[in-house]
Simulated scan of single mutants.
Amino acid sequence: MSMNMHNEMTAPEAIPSLLSSKGERFESDSYAKMVARRFLQHKMAVAGLASFVLLVLIGVFAPLIAPYDPNAIGGAFSAAPSAQHWLGTDQVGRDVLSRLIYATRVSLSVGVLAVAIYVIVGTVIGAVAGYMGGWVDMVVNRVIDVVMSFPTLMVILVLVTVLGTGLSNIIIVLALLGWPPVARLVRGSVLSLRQTEFVKAGVALGLSTPRLIFGHILPNAMGPILVNATFGAAAAILSESSLSFLGMGVQPPTASWGNMLNAAQSITALTSQPWLWIPPGLVIIVSVLSINFIGDGIRDAMDPKKLNV
């Protein structure tokens, strides 16, 4: 009798804890599956993801795919497309297709690395400012206002002139100018999440500030961060292409989409040698559109107003 009574008393106490752990895991899995399902229903986003993955694979396996060395002079100058050179040759006899394939590696690395750096920096700064508040928040906000008050293109040109051209310097410059919008976005999300019950419960339980910020608050603010990162990657690719087109980005003989366009800006190339500028221009358009479609898909998939649809 006493054992039955003991079981009846302990069983109900054990059930909530089991339901809590299993329920949280089930809720997390269900949310992830729901977001993935909604993303897959976005046809343009799926097409963009497929195109972007294809571009990444082309960049990764460029040495295996490219028919020629991108810097080797192996054909006639500005030769039209042929069986030997599918996209023709440039002004010094280099294979355009090979240079386009290797340029994919360079241009995408700028977009991915620059965005990865400034998203991490902006997320940390914005999360700390939003959670700590007070003078920390005030100082961070003033720094963000100062950085965002400068004309971006002019600052990029000045910094590239001071630091020098090259792939690593472009990544550093874009990262230096890209973190303030992310920090402001994360700060706003953290300010709203800081007042929620689960954060107050974590404070009451004595959880450390880093654990609260990075273990509990930021995972609930990842949606806007991911969307910002995708659009930022597209903007970084355009910025690199613009700088290279102006002769202040990646320098020859290293191939990038921008300096391929720069080499084809003569009237002769524009009018009678379209194989020099149409392929890199099309690849830039495809890459930027693909990333933007991915961002649209993530935004729609993680929209809380549509998650129950």
Rank of each mutant, 00 (worst) to 15 (best):
N169V: 04
V186D: 13
I170K: 03
V182S: 10
V186R: 10
I172H: 01
L163R: 00
W179F: 07
R184E: 06
V162E: 00
I172P: 05
T165P: 12
P180L: 08
R184N: 10
V186I: 12
L159A: 04
V162M: 05
S189E: 15
L185T: 15
I171T: 01
V158S: 00
V186Q: 12
V162A: 06
A175I: 11
L174C: 02
G188K: 11
V160S: 04
T165Q: 10
I172T: 06
L167R: 05
P181W: 01
L167K: 08
I170V: 15
W179Y: 07
G178Y: 05
V162T: 01
L176R: 08
V160C: 01
V186H: 11
S168N: 11
T165F: 04
I170Q: 13
V173G: 03
V186M: 14
I170F: 05
S168K: 12
S189A: 15
L176F: 09
T165A: 13
G164R: 08
T161E: 00
T165V: 06
L174E: 01
L174H: 00
L185M: 15
A175V: 12
L185Q: 11
W179S: 12
L174P: 05
L177E: 04
V173K: 02
L185G: 03
V173R: 06
T161V: 01
I170C: 07
S189D: 15
W179P: 12
L177K: 09
S189L: 14
L159W: 02
V182F: 09
A175G: 13
V160G: 04
I171F: 03
R184Q: 09
P181S: 05
T165M: 04
R184A: 12
L174T: 03
S189H: 12
V186P: 13
L174Q: 02
T165N: 09
G166P: 08
L174K: 04
S189I: 13
N169F: 06
S189P: 13
S189R: 15
R184F: 10
V182C: 10
L167C: 07
I171V: 12
W179M: 09
R187A: 08
L167M: 11
V186T: 13
I172M: 09
L176M: 14
V173H: 02
V158E: 00
R187D: 07
T161M: 01
L177R: 07
I170Y: 08
